[in-house]
Amino acid sequence: MGSVRTNRYSIVSSEEDGMKLATMAVANGFGNGKSKVHTRQQCRSRFVKKDGHCNVQFINVGEKGQRYLADIFTTCVDIRWRWMLVIFCLAFVLSWLFFGCVFWLIALLHGDLDTDYKDDDDKSKVSKACVSEVNSFTAAFLFSIETQTTIGYGFRCVTDECPIAVFMVVFQSIVGCIIDAFIIGAVMAKMAKPKKRNETLVFSHNAVIAMRDGKLCLMWRVGNLRKSHLVEAHVRAQLLKSRITSEGEYIPLDQIDINVGFDSGIDRIFLVSPITIVHEIDEDSPLYDLSKQDIDNADFEIVVILEGMVEATAMTTQCRSSYLANEILWGHRYEPVLFEEKHYYKVDYSRFHKTYEVPNTPLCSARDLAEKKYILSNANSFCYENEVALTSKEEEEDSENGVPESTSTDSPPGIDLHNQASVPLEPRPLRRESEIGSRR
């Protein structure tokens, strides 16, 4: 089982795998120059863009038009607004034209077009017409509009002379109601789609790998820009990579689940303020055997998904993003964004995407760390350097704002901070800030 798991979770494809794949392509008759073999020097295209759209195009789909027309309502909801407006206008105009032609044909076959009612006051002739005051196609078209929109100006009306005319008036009224219901329903469904809710759900630009509770963890940050909550919010993550099976089958995008606390339930989050999602790199993680150097040379993509129900409509929305291997910062942490004021908490989104480097973060893999092949620094050293990194950030910001350097908390000259780390230190809580992250 261990060997199978290692093969499945191998992220960085070796040169031997690339040569094996190329040999397979030639042997199977696919070596026509169009096949692409992804190596370390040639990274694959992003499968999920940063804005959440999937970078996929469908080609050679059989009976595409028929399949889309069979699900016309979903098609109308998914198309762009400009095409929705075109369909909206065409549906009414074509129905008016169709029934206008029908009423014109009825008048033509009944002989109503030969009668001039402007110079004739004989009401008996008017009563013999199928539709009064309809003696041309324009008049028939206007009567069709008046019937379907129930305008009723009063000059044109159907008589009991022709039952077919009466039937067409009733039929057009029913068709008009159906068109109204369909168009209004599609427009309302399109307006109520929770897709735009994703514009106020954000992911951090970069993911980070750092120590948390004595273990290497992959972390990324999510935030909600609205005050309205995302009900039943939960997160998922998958690692996408290519691999070759033991039988020699090439899988271009193998999807591997990344555990973010599904078993323990901590994948469900209360997204009021930005939260750091934590994936513990343990023996079940696809990143277990990867060191910093392996991450730098790897070719994979981590897709992160945030799902929840919109509070206003109770409709489920899904926000997506992805991180390539070069977008994962090893040995970094996110800057705090949640600050405790006197009577409330304040979230500073200008710090949302910012990170700071944490010294002495192990550069080895989580496996080597678990097997004690890498000796961690003293816990006080880690905490102290973590505090120094934050303090230096604040000093830089104070210097930019014009604060005198004498007010900063610099260490005395001639003292090495790293050498001082081995000395037991008193706890130094942050002056006014605390970061709330997901705790395992």
Rank of each mutant, 00 (worst) to 15 (best):
T75A: 09
A421N: 13
N419T: 10
C43Q: 09
I164E: 13
V304Q: 00
T74E: 14
G65F: 15
S408D: 14
L338G: 03
V56S: 14
V423S: 12
C43N: 13
V37I: 09
S3P: 05
G52N: 00
E146P: 02
G185Y: 04
N360P: 00
C319K: 11
V303D: 03
K373G: 14
S411P: 09
V93Q: 01
E405A: 08
Y288V: 00
N60P: 10
W330Q: 00
H205W: 06
F182P: 02
I269Y: 06
R5E: 15
K354C: 09
G223E: 03
V48N: 02
V235S: 05
M211H: 14
S132W: 02
Y344C: 12
R226W: 07
S14I: 06
K64G: 10
S45Y: 09
K128I: 09
Q42H: 04
E301Y: 01
Y250A: 15
A140D: 01
F167T: 15
I269A: 09
Y344E: 06
P362T: 00
T313Y: 06
V102Q: 07
T159M: 02
P427H: 08
L218P: 02
I281V: 03
C383F: 07
H343R: 12
L417P: 12
Y9P: 15
T407V: 08
V337P: 01
H234E: 13
F171S: 03
T6W: 04
N419Q: 11
E400M: 11
H343V: 06
P286L: 00
Y9K: 13
L376M: 05
G154F: 03
D284Q: 13
G152Q: 00
L376R: 14
R432E: 15
K346D: 03
L253Y: 13
L109Q: 15
A389M: 13
V310G: 15
E397N: 10
I106W: 02
F137R: 02
C89H: 03
L363M: 12
E232T: 14
F143Y: 04
E280V: 09
H53T: 04
N198P: 12
L240S: 03
M315G: 08
R428A: 15
S35P: 11
Y288A: 02
V61H: 11
C383W: 05
L376P: 13
V235N: 00
Y323I: 08
A207P: 11
R320W: 10
E249L: 10
V222D: 01
C89E: 02
V12L: 02
T276D: 13
R432L: 11
R67Q: 04
C54S: 13
G31Q: 12
D416C: 11
G248V: 02
D348H: 00
L425N: 12
A189D: 10
A325K: 03
L240W: 09
S377H: 08
R221L: 01
E280G: 04
S10H: 04
G154N: 03
D121Y: 14
S132Q: 09
I11Y: 12
K125W: 15
A189H: 15
Y374P: 12
E232S: 14
R431P: 13
A370P: 03
K215I: 09
D119V: 01
Q41I: 11
R8P: 05
L113C: 03
N386Q: 13
A312K: 07
R432F: 13
E435C: 04
R44D: 14
Y288T: 00
N55V: 03
K346M: 05
I328Y: 01
D282A: 10
M188I: 06
Y334M: 04
M168S: 14
V126H: 05
R320N: 06
R5P: 14
L390Y: 09
D78E: 12
G176W: 03
A107S: 05
K125R: 14
K36M: 10
Q238A: 12
Q255H: 04
L253H: 06
V310M: 11
L105F: 03
V310I: 13
N360C: 08
M191W: 09
I145G: 05
P274N: 03
Y288S: 00
I179K: 10
R333G: 15
M168K: 00
D119N: 02
R431V: 13
D410M: 11
P429H: 04
V175S: 06
S406C: 12
N401K: 08
W96V: 15
H229I: 05
H229A: 11
R431D: 14
I305D: 06
N386K: 06
R320S: 15
E435W: 07
S35F: 07
T74I: 06
I178S: 10
S246K: 14
R8E: 14
R320K: 12
C157L: 11
P359Y: 04
R212H: 12
I269C: 07
G62I: 13
P194C: 03
D160C: 07
D116S: 15
W81A: 08
D17F: 05
E397L: 08
Q420T: 11
V358H: 06
S124T: 12
R46Q: 01
N32C: 09
S399Y: 08
A314S: 12
L109M: 11
I184C: 07
V202D: 08
V310D: 14
T407L: 07
R367S: 03
A314K: 06
C162K: 02
S377L: 08
K373T: 11
T23V: 03
H353A: 05
R5M: 04
S285F: 00
A140I: 00
A207D: 00
I79E: 04
P404W: 12
I106M: 05
